[in-house]
Design a protein around this nucleic acid. Structure first.
Lengths: 238, 238
DNA sequence: GCAAAAGTGTTGGATTTACACCCATGC
DNA sequence: GCATGGGTGTAAATCCAACACTTTTGC
């Protein structure tokens, strides 16, 4: 298994990334199905090289899976229960896949891991999901309808979502989930997807404009029989 | 060195605890001076046993240093820069203390460590600072006037304070820094110490009472020539 | 009575929330 | 013109900061 060769990882620490994207009015998470028999779905994860910052490691993991370099990234929690190990998951995996795993890999993974949780916000149209070595499938899943995830990855997503929601306006980061330009309605629908609740249209617009970070561009003529909405661009340096 | 004997710690991960206390209108942090030549001041830290939850490890470290069991504890950040190691600090220490450290200890500590930061809020009158094995002195220091701390411990305190301030009202945890009963003025002075800024007396009182978690008790007659203030107790349930 | 400090009230401004109205667009 | 959806305005309600006033206490 390549992943552990020529590498000098810090033992017993992993990184798990909740990569958020947004499409079709749904908040999505990038998950991969492991290349083994059985339905093992996992978050994008990895390990930390001995001479690598943890933020850099997270960034590397994200770049590997999405191909993009401009990534909003934030550490949000450490998951470190003693019972947090791969044993339960491994037992099932080995049962279904006898003899597929080398001893050195088994010994590495069959340990307790403390995992640092990061969440990332990416423009789903720019990111191109790329399978890592152990992935059979990689795809965006609706955060409200995730497949059964291995270990405590479900809890990790929950906690990431909770952290994302915390003071989202002030953080001015939601725009990372949208393309370069967008309408106010699209922004509102994004917020509604993140918070899983509706917002009042006029008040939402007022609140967003009051942030003083949106640049109004030309109108977007959709061909629909109604007033054309303005396009906006996020302008950080105001 | 006892600390590493008979122990089975997870390598390259440490815990650093910012233990906050409050006295004389000052927010304090528990720091210890290491039992070596040279002025090496440190936060309360430790390591994680192989079969121990990280929260439990932090709790154990706190209990060792304060003797108390009812501790408000919260993980707030992970410090994991690649450059984050003991080497610079060790060089000075060994220079000043030749031959005092065994090889196995040196090999253990002379490594990169990823440290999980916790902050704790304790009633300074209940806590009895207790030196750990490597401590020469342990004491409460004003957070605004800390001695020079080893490694990045100063940054860790900064970040802990920042996290503590975040939504302090909603978290309803400041009361952990005060004795069982207290006056409104004492609570206000605590807030002023934490935020390092004054609050308006009447508005502060209103805000605190509106939280619906303070139980008003009998008056506290101090003998001063003025109206006696009420005592309050924090009432978490209902 | 008086000074000191605690408790409470009140006002103006800002911010939020709900409701209403006008405007542009394609048919 | 008209239905549709976008943009804006406004009034009520709520929240917040500053000011003022009253009460209690020991001398």
């Amino acid at each position: 298994m390549q992943i552990l060769n020529n590498q000098n990882y810090i033992p017993q620490i992993s990184i798990d990334c909740v990569i958020f994207g947004y499409r079709d009015k749904e908040l999505k998470v990038l998950v991969s199905k492991l290349n083994f028999e059985g339905n093992f779905w996992s978050l994008a994860g990895g390990f930390i090289n001995q001479h690598e910052d943890i933020d850099t490691a997270a960034y590397r993991i994200l770049h590997e899976r999405t191909g993009i370099t401009e990534i909003y990234l934030e550490q949000f929690h450490v998951f470190g229960n003693a019972a947090r190990n791969n044993i339960g998951f491994f037992k099932k995996l080995i049962e279904l896949n006898p003899g597929t795993m080398g001893n050195e890999v088994y010994d590495w993974l069959n340990n307790r891991f403390i995992s640092i949780g990061y969440y990332a916000l990416v423009d789903i149209n720019t990111a191109i999901p790329k399978k890592a070595e152990l992935d059979k499938v990689i795809d965006w899943c609706n955060v409200k309808d995730l497949p059964g995830l291995i270990m405590d990855h479900k809890d990790i997503v929950e906690k990431a979502l909770e952290s994302l929601r915390q003071n989202l306006d002030q953080k001015l980061i939601a725009f990372n989930l949208l393309p370069e330009t967008f309408t106010m309605k699209e922004l509102q629908e994004l917020y509604e997807a993140i918070f899983d609740k509706p917002f009042a249209r006029n008040n939402f617009q007022k609140k967003m404009l009051d942030l003083n970070v949106l640049e109004r561009l030309e109108k977007k003529f959709t061909g629909a029989a109604n007033k054309a909405p303005y396009l906006y661009r996020f302008r950080n340096n105001g």
